[in-house]
Design a protein around this nucleic acid. Structure first.
Lengths: 166, 166
DNA sequence: CTTAACCGATTGCATTTTGCAACTGGTTGC
DNA sequence: GCAACCAGTTGCAAAATGCAATCGGTTAAG
């Protein structure tokens, strides 16, 4: 993660910031899995990131202004990681990657259901989900709640598939 | 580029395929720079990829079905690389990355202009550009041509900025 | 027909990044 | 007071990356 710039191309710059094998997975877990602590990100991830890599990525994402860290008032050692607006706006990238992966790669049924719903929901659903993230990560109040949130709907759909498969 | 699967999550799988520092830049140059030969991709890139990395990435992208390679009838040594439908459908990911990078990173004016136009154009413009790519890479005839293509418009805007800056 | 430039790669080697496992210094709950 | 938990750090091996030189073949100019 050197800070030497290869070119001023926006795609290149984005790749220099989040174009590695782990950064976007950490963001994904913060967004869809609501992981906010180091230990949650470390142990509750599907892929099993190792602790040194996680520590390094969190440091980089922090330095880039994609996440913030604050002390957990309920536990002196715990930090709470939150997405910034800049981090929240990575969602469309994740959504497109999810849609592409769902269409072309051997996605498992339970892990693919969210991608399918998000893809079908389109940009409108993404915007709604981003508003929910602004509420949980930035403390921005949302106006209304008619029915279950996008996050709840995705989670419910996931659990339904898991239950069905067993 | 091991083929061991970390998880069946669509985002993770996408990252395993194109989540490195170079693959998407190669795709970008094929899409927006119309680079089709090894030497073009090698020397006309902003970032200066090295030949062994390029060879390796082309091999991987080929194996993944994202690009194809055929012999150039006009030159026995040259191969022509083309995007497959799967590769063309990476465009929305690139477009979102371009938009995010343009918004949050120190993008140069001349390399940012395409990102701005593409972002303003939205999914409709992306679809049009993908149709143009289907024509040039897959030989699929398009129906109509009213005015300059998206590719031409992006290129013209880029050149205009370059001319202005000098 | 010679020859220099060009072609898509490959090779060897140094540097950097990643991955794993053990461990540290500290906190919390029982 | 002690076991479980916490956010990381350390040491080291393995893999990926980056660079420069090179290879065997093709093409175009003279």
């Amino acid at each position: 993660m050197g800070d030497d710039m290869r070119s001023g191309c926006p795609i290149n710059l984005s790749l220099e910031v989040v174009g590695d094998r782990w950064s976007l997975l950490v963001i994904r877990d913060m967004m869809f899995g609501n992981r906010r602590h180091f230990r949650e990100l470390l142990t509750k991830s599907e892929e099993g990131i190792s602790s040194n890599i996680l520590a390094d990525r969190l440091k980089t994402l922090l330095a880039q202004g994609i996440i913030t860290r604050e002390d957990d008032p309920a536990h002196k050692q715990k930090g709470i990681y939150s997405l910034t607006e800049q981090g929240i706006e990575l969602l469309p990238i994740l959504a497109q990657m999810a849609a592409w992966g769902y269409k072309y790669l051997p996605v498992s049924e339970e892990l693919g259901i969210r991608a399918r719903l998000l893809s079908e929901g389109g940009p409108k659903m993404w915007a709604e989900f981003m508003d929910e993230l602004r509420e949980t990560h930035l403390g921005v109040k949302r106006r209304k709640k008619t029915g279950p949130s996008v996050g709840e709907r995705l989670q419910a759909a996931y659990e339904k598939v898991v239950a069905k498969k067993r």
